[in-house]
Design a protein around this nucleic acid. Structure first.
Length: 359
DNA sequence: CTGTGCCCTTTCGTTCGGAG
DNA sequence: CTCCGAACGAAAGGGCACAG
């Protein structure tokens, strides 16, 4: 979507924290250089928070002995001829073969016509709008068959076009169309987020949406407005304002097409309720899905964050909570259960009348 | 100019459900 | 049975905004 090339290292199978790891994130091109990695090097790895495998240190060239007695997760023996080679940083995009550009620590394809980027943009659209069942593979299939070439094309898909695809049937096609129909009316903030502009995630999109209220106002600003009008918003600086403006301009055709197909609703004013000005982080497993819990918190005026810090007010911890719970305990943060959270929310459920009254 | 904190984005393995 | 996709677990690097 942003055109960044994200390198991944394949490593000989290694048990870490109870699972067999064969793929390790390298984050960005800068990281490869920082580690001075070569193919055939021996490395030490860890799993960040017992989850994502990451290289800590490069120990230099490996030898054949390092590869002995290693097995894939399914029990098959690992066998490969050890070779030592330089890593060649690609000059051209592996997908569209256009020239790549170094951007800080990242290596990017900046072509908007790149098929890989189109796929990412469409996948991101679907994921950010929480459509189930439309993933990378299906999008790739649709692109390959020429059934779509943009986000807007999704909304013209017909049942028979989807059901005739490999591994898709009547039922799957129905599900896909139903999911698409569900997104034919969007709030402005969701729409802006789903456009997938760099650095404009759900929070920032919401800030812009609250400022402009309507898509028409945004388009008007892009055509004639000054950057200054937007940099006055709390949390928005010159850079983000510029990215936003350029992002809308670059996507103008796409936005016009989408506005023909879907309704963009004016942004509601912020939710408020019993959890105003309080931050929550969710960890562990709960009876409700995380999305549902997060939504309930937001609807009550609370804020959901992804990590534990000293500024966090409450950690909602369920079963099998991991390091977040330990961190929170260390910081003296209030730990609550899912049940306690919903008890806190419940009493002021009828916020509609309250809001009306305030006006 | 610098430090702090926040936001965005991405990463892998396991497990499970839905469909073909 | 096989494939796909999603839901989980959770951190970190980059980069910005802003306060001091």
């Amino acid at each position: 979507r942003t055109g960044a090339i994200t390198p991944v290292a394949r490593i000989a199978p290694q048990m870490v924290g109870g699972v067999t790891v064969e793929n390790v994130t390298l984050h960005n091109v800068g990281e490869v250089e920082r580690l001075g990695l070569k193919i055939g090097d021996k490395v030490t790895i860890t799993r960040r928070g017992d989850v994502i495998p990451k290289i800590i240190e490069n120990l230099g060239p490996a030898n054949q002995k390092d590869l002995e007695n290693r097995f894939h997760a399914n029990g098959d023996e690992f066998s490969i001829q050890l070779k030592q080679e330089q890593i060649i940083i690609p000059q051209l995009c592996p997908a569209c073969e256009r020239e790549l550009v170094i951007d800080g620590a990242f290596l990017r394809c900046i072509s908007l016509e790149c098929e890989a980027r189109t796929n990412r943009a469409i996948t991101y659209w679907c994921r950010s709008l929480e459509m189930d069942g439309i993933g990378e593979k299906l999008v790739e299939l649709l692109l390959d068959k020429g059934l779509i070439s943009s986000i807007a094309d999704l909304y013209s898909l017909e049942h028979h076009q989807i059901s005739s695809l490999e591994r898709m049937g009547d039922k799957s096609a129905n599900n896909v169309i139903e999911e698409l129909n569900k997104t034919k009316n969007l709030s402005l903030s969701k729409f802006l987020h789903a456009l997938g502009m760099e650095r404009i995630g759900p929070e920032v999109a919401s800030v812009f949406a609250q400022h402009f209220i309507t898509m028409e106002a945004i388009l008007k600003w892009v055509d004639s407005g000054e950057i200054e009008q937007v940099t006055q918003i709390d949390g928005i600086g010159e850079k983000v304002a510029e990215i936003f403006k350029l992002g809308i301009q670059k996507r103008r055709q796409s936005i016009d097409d989408l506005m023909e197909l879907i309704g963009i609703n004016d942004e509601d004013s912020k939710h408020s309720g019993s959890l105003d000005n309080q931050t929550f982080c969710i960890t562990g497993s709960h009876s409700r899905g995380r999305k549902e819990i997060a939504l309930a918190i937001k609807n009550a005026g609370g804020k959901v964050v992804g990590s534990v810090s000293k500024n966090l007010d409450y950690l909602v911890a369920g079963e099998k909570a991991g390091s977040k719970l330990i961190t929170a305990e260390g910081l003296g943060i209030t730990i609550m259960t899912e049940t306690e959270l919903f008890e806190k929310i419940k009493p002021q459920k009828s916020s509609t009348s309250k809001t009306l009254f305030e006006f």
